[in-house]
């Protein structure tokens, strides 16, 4: 296991290093001045000379890269070209907001998707199975942005049940600290806390639900297929031969083994979730990483693009590696089969 752990960690480090290399190169590849692209300080600015010095503008590319790394590790990721806000602090703040809806949506997708998938497998080719399969197929084929627009149109505008956009009614004046609105409310302890939480909840409900749909449909189908596969395995038969009840066979043998296949796909699922989160954030004006990054791309806000891409790629990378390690730790025979290590 330790050998495998080391391999995964070295993979992580190498990839992270390549990522910084790419982010650094972007500063050169973008049109405009390298110093402005990476630091967000315009040549007209009085701080420009000083910044150029710090970023080793004249000292050759290798020195520039080391200077870039130094800034990166110090958390000095430059300023936004648009509003002059420091990129690193913005990322820290918006990351929380993104994580909040992505995480809740993911949990909903898992909590609903897995039982539904199991149910479909248990009622294979019966009415229950057909219904679940039809819903999941249509849910999967409807694009997220279209779904979101329709939901806003009907639920928010027509029926007026929930607000259209934003994180919370601005009248509550919550100071963003973590970016996650619920955490922020709890940290702030405003006068009308229950009402504030209620407002936040109403704002959140639509984006989170729409975000949850696609991963949930995927989980349903993954779970159904892997469950069908597992249920036909011999060790399920031997469970019944031991005289175990159906519930115990399912819980002890079928579910854990079926989850193994699903776990292997979770990484891909999370990438999909992150992409969809960006779309949802733009549509619902959710102040997260995604809407910010999309805006930065439209406005050619180079420091933001650089920092944002770095963070999102790093997050996906970290999740993938964490999942790999989890997989190897939880399923010993996988470790053996794939890597020959113990």
């Amino acid at each position: 296991m330790s050998r495998y752990l080391l391999r995964q960690l070295s993979l992580l480090l190498v990839t992270l290093w390549l990522l910084t290399l790419l982010a650094f190169s972007l500063g050169h590849w973008f049109s405009g001045d390298f110093i402005t692209n990476t630091s967000g300080i315009f040549p007209e600015d009085i701080r420009f000379a000083e910044t150029a010095e710090a970023r080793a503008a004249e000292a050759g590319i290798v020195n520039q890269y080391t200077a870039y790394l130094g800034h990166l590790f110090r958390g000095d990721w430059g300023l936004s070209l648009l509003d002059g806000e420091p990129v690193f602090e913005q990322i820290a703040l918006r990351f929380g907001a993104t994580l909040e809806i992505a995480l809740i949506a993911f949990v909903i997708a898992i909590v609903l998707g897995i039982p539904l998938g199991v149910l479909a497998a248990l009622y294979f080719r019966k009415a229950v199975d057909h219904t679940i399969l039809t819903i999941s197929l249509s849910g999967y084929s409807i694009p997220v942005f279209w779904f979101a627009q329709i939901a806003i149109l009907i639920i928010a505008i027509q029926w007026g049940l929930v607000p259209i956009a934003g994180q919370i009614n601005p009248l509550y004046e919550i100071t963003p600290r973590s970016g996650s609105i619920i955490l922020d409310i709890l940290l702030e302890q405003p006068e009308h806390m229950t009402e504030a939480l209620h407002s936040a909840f109403l704002h959140m409900i639509l984006p989170v639900c729409i975000l949850a749909i696609m991963p949930m449909m995927l989980i349903i189908r993954l779970m159904r297929n892997s469950m069908l596969d597992v249920l036909s395995q011999n060790y399920i038969t031997s469970g019944y031969a031991k005289g175990l009840s159906i519930a115990r066979v399912l819980w002890n043998h079928a579910l854990p083994n079926a989850m193994q296949h699903v776990m292997r796909q979770i990484g891909a699922l999370i990438s999909l979730l992150i992409t969809n989160t960006m779309i949802i954030e733009v549509i619902f004006s959710w102040p997260g990483l995604g809407s910010w990054l999309v805006r930065s791309i439209y406005e050619r806000d180079y420091p933001v693009i650089q920092g944002g891409l770095l963070v999102i790629s790093a997050v996906i990378l970290l999740i993938t590696i964490a999942l790999n390690i989890f997989h190897a730790w939880r399923y010993p025979q996988v470790r053996k089969d794939l890597y020959g290590a113990n």
Partner: peptide, 8 residues
């Protein structure tokens, strides 16, 4: 072998 649960 195939009648033994691979994960237990």
């Amino acid at each position: 072998k195939s009648y033994l649960d691979p994960n237990l």
